[in-house]
Design a binder for these strands. Structure first.
Lengths: 159, 159
DNA sequence: CAGTTTGTTCAGTATAAATTGAACATCATG
DNA sequence: CATGATGTTCAATTTATACTGAACAAACTG
């Protein structure tokens, strides 16, 4: 046992580090969630910091991000001023939180950009106009499908 | 008009740069795909390089990546030694290529890791054994759902 | 086959993002 | 209200990743 983490713990944490990587989240976010996930009892900021051997700043930021999409829950422990956390284990909740915080904004800004592109095309009056218009229609189509797919995916994953 | 790119072109390209960012792909990949997407005719490596003002290396790498999941198609132009490319516009094709090249491997390696975790737990014999086992079951459950969701998402998006 | 065109590779460098740690704010408590 | 405990913020630094450009390989051309 190195670092205060058992091999089992390290392996679970690494799993979530990889997930974080895929989801474009900081490594530390994966580490923290992983640690909370394997822990059978709630941990506070300092617990995480010490066991993962990361800085206070990273730990604070990481917990903030995890809270922001509901991947962790705050637990009140009587007689203790510290905030304690447990991993949320409902995939549905996590996925929908993640979707609305990290995905939806991108989809929305994409929508705005397509509108802007439409406007630009008005004053384009080119030979390729026809072809171009088809492309933009296509783009809008993708956009819409992405927007509709998102909630369905959540249903699908969330069970 | 700056850089040889019209405002319209720049806007479309930026759209794909943002997408690339979400999908964890290099910016240049988004740029190249965007350029090919707005272009009404096929472009070769040097066309992309010059119009986007990026290096040969980046362009070559970018095209390689785009080819790797079928986001672009090679077009043969008689009497020209160069390879020409057009953007693939079937979302279904692109999404399934992306899934099998960039997502599936992660899902698979996650599966292996869970197996390893299972083994580690055998020789764990702890008090928390019960709780821990539930967690790992949960993990496996997520894993399976992700594996099954993937093809469904493709159906959903691909139309 | 020497010269040219085309594309790839990769060591070095630049860029963006995450992490650190110290300063700061907040608040409970004696 | 001074002290200590807890958590946040942010400038400086580290780290990971993408990009560059020169060297190279392959293949065509005259």
């Amino acid at each position: 046992m190195v670092n205060g983490l058992s091999e089992l713990e390290r392996e679970v944490i690494e799993l979530f580090v990889r997930m974080a990587d895929v989801l474009n989240l900081p490594r530390s976010v994966g580490e923290i969630y992983g640690l909370l996930f394997v822990s059978s009892d709630p941990l506070c900021l300092d617990d995480c910091r010490i066991r993962l051997d990361i800085s206070k700043g990273s730990t604070s930021q990481g917990l903030k991000i995890l809270r922001s999409f509901g991947a962790i829950r705050t637990v009140y422990i009587p007689g203790d001023r510290k905030d304690y956390y447990v991993a949320e284990t409902s995939l549905r909740k996590i996925a929908s939180g993640f979707a609305s915080e990290q995905i939806r904004p991108h989809v929305d800004s994409g929508k705005e950009r397509i509108e802007r592109i439409r406007e630009l095309m008005e004053r384009h009056g080119n030979e390729d106009r026809e072809t171009l218009e088809e492309k933009i229609d296509l783009l809008e189509n993708w956009q819409k499908r992405a927007g509709k797919a998102l909630p369905l995916i959540l249903k699908l994953i969330g069970g």
